[in-house]
Design a protein around this nucleic acid. Structure first.
Lengths: 229, 229
DNA sequence: GGTAACAAACAGACTGGTCGGTATAAATAA
DNA sequence: TTATTTATACCGACCAGTCTGTTTGTTACC
């Protein structure tokens, strides 16, 4: 090859990702992307056949990165403990740490951005998003099943949706962090997920020393029944 | 007034909301909106000065509806129990029921849609989104504080982020339901929020009868320490 | 008839995408 | 070593179509 185009290609993708997370895919015009990347239209359409082709490349790159990230954190957790519950809690804490590092450009997720413009994308691009989600859910869900074999949950829970909760909290926290312009929101929600798992499965919990508990329990007995759940 | 335009105005807003949730705001062209609403461009720009004006009207309408919805569910919960914890749990369950009713057009949230195109909107429109979020957080947070005065949490939690978790789960669940094309995902995540609150605050929990607990605890002791949390 | 509610044609800016041409570097040939 | 070919990497003007918004005109109701 004559010159190395990989740097240009990466510059285009980085610029595109930034613009897309600010304005969405439609409003991220090719002109705005090339302006940000500091290249020209010719270079853009040399590297990407169409704008849709760029979308597919972007979502694939993120999918690969996220899968690798998950594997890294899971392996680290597995090397730190032999107990499945501890592994899962550690893994969640690792994500909490990773998210705490995120800074100023309030974090966002390409998957969410694309999903809220889903009619604009072809089946292949949306399929990548679905794959990432199912892969994540199955990976966490597998760990959860190992946990449940050792520790019966304090409340009946569905493994699949409980695994999905981690995804859901992450996606929701990205939105919250953008609304509040506070990158710390993501880490805070991971911590709540860790709490939830601990409360569900940890064999020994501190019985809270509740001062007004008796009164509260009395209330409880006085109250009308809960609506059918 | 000569003719009643409120029906047309509502038709425009309904059509716009539907198109926006499918394609995003940029791609929701005025032409596509008026086609869906069955009217013409003249009618559109009679009712809305600009497209941005429509965005503001839409987000305001949703904000009002959501605030009213929250007030309805809170009041129902307060009428069903005198205990703050029960009120909160009931309120969450009411939302779970409401979300279970949602059907085919996989639910979505205008706030999230707008936030992922935030550069396209003026401060007023984004301000409405922020207001909804802070109002929701404060309303739930207030209840949570009442709960915490009666029931010490089993794990140390931050009231603000715990209140935000409800918002975060809702927003994240919308995304998940769109990815999976399963409207039931939203209700499932509300249920987990209820579980979390119950495990955190409920004075009496079933101590799980864990068969392999001893072995697990032994593992626990063998394991390397958790990374600094 | 006066005004609110709409229709339809139009304008100008911007869109994704094309295309002829250029620059650079490696491979080949003299 | 040097000249020539060849393929990759990139440029920027341009096209057809779409975008929001305007303008002018028509309809329906008090």
């Amino acid at each position: 090859m004559a010159r190395d185009g990989t740097a240009t290609r990466k510059a285009i993708m980085d610029a595109a990702q930034a613009v897309i997370l600010e304005t969405g895919f439609s409003a991220a015009s090719v002109d705005s992307v090339i302006a940000r990347a500091g290249i020209t239209k010719g270079a853009f359409f040399y590297h990407f056949k169409t704008k849709a082709d760029l979308a597919l490349a972007l979502v694939r790159r993120d999918a690969d990165a996220d899968a690798a990230h998950l594997e890294t954190n899971l392996q680290r957790a597995e090397s730190l403990s032999r107990d499945p519950l501890q592994q899962l809690l550690i893994c969640v804490s690792l994500y909490e740490e990773d998210m705490a590092k995120l800074a100023a450009p309030y974090p966002g997720c390409l998957y969410a951005s694309f999903i809220y413009e889903s009619q604009l994308f072809d089946a292949a691009t949306l399929g990548v998003v679905r794959q990432v989600f199912t892969h994540w859910t199955q990976r966490i869900g597998g760990k959860l099943e190992a946990v449940m074999r050792l520790y019966p949950p304090r409340l009946p829970v569905d493994v699949k949706t409980l695994a999905e909760t981690s995804l859901v909290l992450a996606e929701g926290a990205f939105i919250l962090s953008k609304v509040q312009r506070d990158a710390g929101a993501v880490a805070a929600q991971w911590r709540h997920y860790r709490n939830y798992l601990e409360l569900l499965f940890a064999p020994h919990l501190p019985e809270p020393s509740h001062p007004a508990a008796d009164a509260a329990v009395t209330h409880d007995k006085l109250d009308a029944a809960l609506p059918a759940q």
